[in-house]
Each structure stands twice: as structure tokens, then as C-alpha cells.
Amino acid sequence: MNKKIINIILLILISIAFFSCEEKPDPPEVEQHIVVNFDFRNNGEDQEFDTMMYVNEAGNHYMVNEIQFFISDVILHNSNGSEFLIDDWKDIHYVDTDVPATHKWVVFDNIPAGEYDNISFTFGFIEEKNHSFMFPNPPERDMFWPEFLGGGYHYMKLNGKWLDDNQQISPFDFHMGIGQIYYSYPDSIIDFVHNAYEVVLPNSSFDLEENSTKNISFIMNIEKWFESPHTYDHNIWKGYIMQNQEAMNVACENGHDVFTVEF
């Protein structure tokens, strides 16, 4: 009798245990994202466009009309020594002062939570990624760098005007891309220089918590293009530098500290 009771109790217990075993739902997927905003400043203030209100370190009075540029291969450097390359969906981002939609990059990648020491990116594109005609549509399409000058795309177009030595307002195309080494200018090009460079953003450490989205602002401080380590004088380099590797080299070296970051 006891055995029977024990068996019944066991059966009931097993049944309860069996039916109470609900299938556990999949744990919710943990996702962390970043949103990169792009901002433009000049001497700490928001950049004003189309007004001759700025003076650079060389004493040039100048204005900025528009800026277009590419950054690529953004890397988040984790404090544990690992690196996270943003390329799940796209690895190149285009920014255009005339296209507000480009000022915000909602990054597709699911980024591991953790502490990050800094952020770096390539200004422009490395040689292996700078393919001619890879952008068939505007506005990126219109950043093409002429084939005979090395092809691919401009890293940046910073277009503006300055008050030249003759007190005339002259346009400058502060354009960066593939440079050329000339045997005899302008016809005999013997080599090309890929001027893209890595930017390591200062003070860019941040924590990314689980299931969070981090807003990060990349700020281009425009005056810095013209002041350190080289004083850039428009009266020396004139308005057009696409075929002047020396000028572009100055721009590249000045460009290492152009960007800052805010969270």
C-alpha cells in the first residue's frame, strides 16, 4: 500500500515537474550601438559659413563655404587590448556640410560592451580601399579624384575664400587626396602618394554599457587645418593644391589634431 502511495506521489511529482518545465524563451539579444555625430567648429565656436569672419595663424582673412570629407575604418580600442573595427555594414562614411543627413551616422554594428581607451579612424581611405568609380551616385560620386592625378576620391574638399595679398577675395580649394610626384610639372607624373592618415582622437575613452547606445560627436576644428605644426598661408599655397603634394603634405600633417571628440 505504501509502495503504491509512494509510486502515485512520485508520478504526480514527475508530472508536475514535467509540465512545469516550460520552454525557456531565448534570452533577449544584448545590443550596444554608437551614433556618431559630426560637428564643425572654429576657435571653439560653431563654424559659420559664407562669411569672411575668420583669420588664420598666417593672418589670412578667410571664409568657409562648404566641407565634404570621408572617414573610414573607425576602430574602437578596448581597454582589454582588443580592437573593434566598424565594418559590419559600412566602413566608409561621407560627411557633407550641405547634406545634414550625413552629419549623423547611426552605426549598424553591434559593439561589445566594455571600456574603450580611444577611437581612431582613417582620414580619407587607405590605398586598397580608394577605388575609382566605387560611388556611382551623388553626392559621394562628385568627390571623384581625376584619374590622371591618381584616381579614387577626394579625402576632403574644404572650399572657401580668402583675402589675398592684393586684397582681392580669391577662392581656395583646400582639397586633399592622392598626391603626385612630377618629373616635370604638370605632364610627367612618375609616382603617386597616398596621403590618407590615421587620426587618433584625443580624450576619446568611454564606457559602453550593455543594451545602451552611445552618442559620440566627432568635431572638426577648422582653424587647426592652418596652424600646427605648420602655419598654412593661402598666399603661399594659393587656391588650388590638388597637384601640389607639398601643400597636401602640410595639410595632412596639420590634420592630425583637427578632430576632437565629445560625448
Binding site: D87, D88, W89, K90, D91, I92, F108, P136, N137, R141
Partner: peptide, 14 residues
């Protein structure tokens, strides 16, 4: 396919 792997080659396509 993400553009980080391959980019379109035809005008107007996304």
C-alpha cells in the same frame, strides 16, 4: 550585402 564588402556599380542604385 554590405557596402563594406562590395559597393554597387550602377548609377541610382542604393
Amino acid at each position: 550585402v554590405p557596402p563594406s564588402i562590395i559597393k554597387p556599380q550602377t548609377a541610382w542604385v542604393v
